[in-house]
Write a protein that binds this DNA or RNA. Structure first.
Lengths: 258, 258
DNA sequence: ACAATTTCGATCATATTCTATCGGAAAGCA
DNA sequence: TGCTTTCCGATAGAATATGATCGAAATTGT
């Protein structure tokens, strides 16, 4: 078997991981024809980029939910069906001529993809990736505003520039993706700068709608964005706990199950 | 085998890359009948234009394909050799620890590709595409600031948000790509909003360096950005008119011919 | 809790690859 | 012809990738 470039080998590790959900160091070593040490080094390199999560004996795509933030592209695959259902429920609230805001996140990304055909839409976002969706669609009646700032690993522009930009803007409707929600801690995110930016999003919007799939329930990130009761609506999947439904209905005006 | 022009050889490298997904320096050297050193130089040239990504042992197509704007990539091919030479002359002025600004343009794009390995660099840009270069390189010692705003067709973020952001920032060195330059009208651009943004770039910088290939001479865009004499230096190709060289040397402190 | 087994990471040695030069050949120019 | 410029190959030293080894750490079974 001909030698293989290191980058190609790492690509094959990712492919194997997508097929099998988890891989072992020993089996990868024999399959790829390299030593275990080399496999370990590849896994380290991939883990450093957030492409996978190392576990004892190998690696997996699934991440420890509370602390670490896996890469954006791989989060997309997680709960994709539910995210899509949430996005389809959310897009019904968006009417031609409105101005909306989308923060950075995989669920808001899914929503953005559904919004490209809506006429006379003004969109404010702090996600270059979401902006790119609208740029590529090139709908001339749409107005896309990117906030500026410094980009975090999860593709959010944050920092003083983002805050200044958002303080100058006002939108009808905000769709906010979050990383966790509990009765006590409200909506949370693991990144302090993102929390600050998301608070600016809330101040800049007349109505706020949280988008969160059911895995976000009972998860607490480092920073609170806002308590449950301070937003107007939440859209989530119907696989969420019954107990959670009760609590959310008490705290929020509107709970939409997609 | 008959001798082959350098450009034709690079074309064949790209073809091989498209067929095989990845190529190896050693195999390319024997297939093309040239030394490995020459293959490396070709790969460097192609990587500088973003046509491929170098990896240890060879090269591969960009793993994360970003949706590309046809107009932009086409422009990138024009005068590519001269743009690359200009970028290489410009990158010599960039030292670790500096803060620089890059406006949107194909020449500044080429420069950005050369800057990803410079340590402790702070980069301010209004081009999502240039920001993407640095995001992809993921150099942890670099700080990338995107100004925000509304995107023009030429990939520049402009408007009030961009202006507000730039007025808050100050950089050591600005590299400014322009669309035209003449003795009478100075440096110009066809887009009024971009002209306004570029003026903000100039205000935000201690030193200004214009990047312009020789085809920009004697071209006047709709809006003046700044007169010739108001910037510190110009880097252009040596194919520019002798007459232009004389005028530029009179108007500018520094004229660099790449 | 303890021991056996497996896995991990640090370190060294080796092999390959990369970069920075230098010098020569070929091509362009006066 | 003489000069400059560009392209190419060669070489050496630096950087990187890989594999082997061994003690440390984690997992498992009892």
């Amino acid at each position: 078997m001909t030698e293989m470039l290191a980058s190609a080998r790492q690509q094959r590790i990712l492919e194997a991981l997508r097929e099998r959900e988890q891989v072992r160091v020993t089996s990868l070593a024999s399959e790829l024809g390299v030593s275990e040490m080399t496999v370990r080094r590849d896994l380290n390199a991939l883990a450093a980029r957030g492409a996978l999560v190392k576990v004892h004996g190998g690696a997996t795509l699934d991440a420890a939910p509370t602390s670490s933030e896996p890469g954006f592209t791989h989060k997309l695959a997680l709960e994709a069906a539910e995210k899509l259902a949430i996005a389809q429920a959310a897009v019904k609230l968006v009417k031609p001529g409105m101005s909306i805001a989308l923060n950075s996140g995989t669920t808001t990304y899914a929503l953005a993809a559904q919004c490209t055909d809506i006429k006379d839409l003004t969109v404010v976002t702090n996600s270059p990736r979401i902006a790119e969706i609208f740029y590529a669609a090139a709908n001339p009646s749409q107005n896309i505003i990117l906030t500026g700032g410094i980009r975090t690993i999860s593709d959010a522009l944050v920092g003083p520039l983002a805050l200044t930009a958002l303080d100058q803007l006002h939108v009808d409707l905000l769709f906010l993706g979050v990383h966790g929600m509990t009765a006590e801690d409200g909506f949370t995110t693991p990144n302090m700068l993102e929390a600050q930016t998301n608070q600016a999003f809330i101040r800049a919007s007349a109505r706020q709608i949280i988008l969160a799939d059911h895995t976000k329930w009972a998860v607490t990130g480092l920073c609170q964005i806002v308590p449950l009761s301070q937003v107007d609506a939440l859209i989530t999947g119907n696989r969420i706990d019954e107990e959670a439904k009760v609590i959310l209905r008490q705290s929020l005006d509107t709970l939409i199950l997609a």
